[in-house]
Computed example of a mutant assay.
Amino acid sequence: MITSIRNVTFALAAFLAVAMPAVASELGDDGLHKEDWFALTFRDMADDIRAAKADNKRLAIIFEQRGCIYCAAMHEKLLSDPEVRDYIKANFKVVQYNMFGDEEVTDLDGEVLTEKKAARKWGYVFTPTIVFLPDEVPAGKTVAEAAVATMPGAFGKWTFLDMFRWVREKGYEKDEHFQIYHARHIKELRAAGKLDAE
């Protein structure tokens, strides 16, 4: 009897582990999902680029907003996936921005403004929007002008992860466009039997 109860308990625990999505993030007071590995900074873009480089990482900023179902999906389905999360943690310093927030931000051109004014100035209107910055601080440019890539929206796992890989490998400096890079990677995954569909 005890053995059968243990077996049922074990089977139920195993079922729940597979059936329930892994949600690593918590909801903050601002209504945004928080990852414990996101960087907390003074939001000085030049300092953040330098700090990321000192850690042998690249800087990525993520604009989100309260109630954004696509932001929630990004956290619950993508950033909770160990393969995605571990790659990003190892290679990027990620700073979260609130599309309608009032935290102070210092742009690369020296202008000090709020998160919501920065989003307008830089032209970001969708959430989530992930902005990838260069590994060196550019002279006199804004974040939007200096960005090496921008990913508006939450995509499937491989598109999402490939964008981070493409930026880390400085694909934007090479002849292979991101879409070609991504298509090549998907073909390699399928050939290896690791992928049915994106």
Rank of each mutant, 00 (worst) to 15 (best):
I5N: 13
I5G: 10
R6N: 09
A11Y: 06
A13N: 10
A13T: 14
A14S: 11
F15P: 15
L16N: 13
L16V: 15
P21V: 14
A22P: 11
S25D: 11
E26M: 03
L27Q: 15
L27T: 07
D29N: 11
L32G: 01
L32T: 01
H33T: 08
K34Q: 15
E35M: 12
F38S: 13
F38D: 06
A39K: 05
A39S: 12
L40N: 09
R43E: 03
D44R: 13
D47I: 03
I49L: 01
I49M: 00
R50M: 04
A52K: 03
A52Q: 15
K53A: 00
A54E: 15
N56M: 04
K57S: 12
R58Y: 00
L59K: 06
G67H: 03
A73Y: 14
M74A: 09
M74H: 10
E76D: 08
L78W: 10
L79F: 06
D81C: 03
D81Q: 15
E83G: 02
R85T: 15
R85L: 07
D86L: 04
D86V: 00
Y87M: 11
I88V: 08
K89C: 13
A90G: 13
K93C: 07
V95P: 03
Q96F: 00
M99Q: 09
D102A: 01
D102C: 13
V105C: 06
D109S: 04
G110F: 10
T114N: 14
E115P: 06
K117P: 07
R120E: 11
K121Q: 08
Y124A: 04
T127N: 10
T127H: 01
V131L: 06
F132M: 13
L133P: 01
P134I: 06
D135M: 14
V137R: 04
P138W: 09
V143D: 07
E145D: 07
E145L: 03
A147N: 05
A147K: 07
A147M: 11
V148G: 05
V148K: 07
M151S: 02
F155Q: 14
G156R: 03
G156D: 08
G156S: 15
K157E: 12
K157I: 12
F160I: 06
M163G: 13
M163F: 02
M163D: 04
W166V: 06
W166K: 14
V167Y: 08
V167N: 06
R168W: 09
E169F: 00
K174C: 04
Q179L: 11
Q179H: 00
Q179W: 10
Y181P: 14
H182I: 12
H182A: 14
A183Y: 11
A183W: 12
R184L: 15
H185K: 06
I186Q: 08
E188C: 05
R190A: 02
A192Q: 12
A192P: 15
G193E: 02
L195D: 09
D196Q: 00
A197L: 02
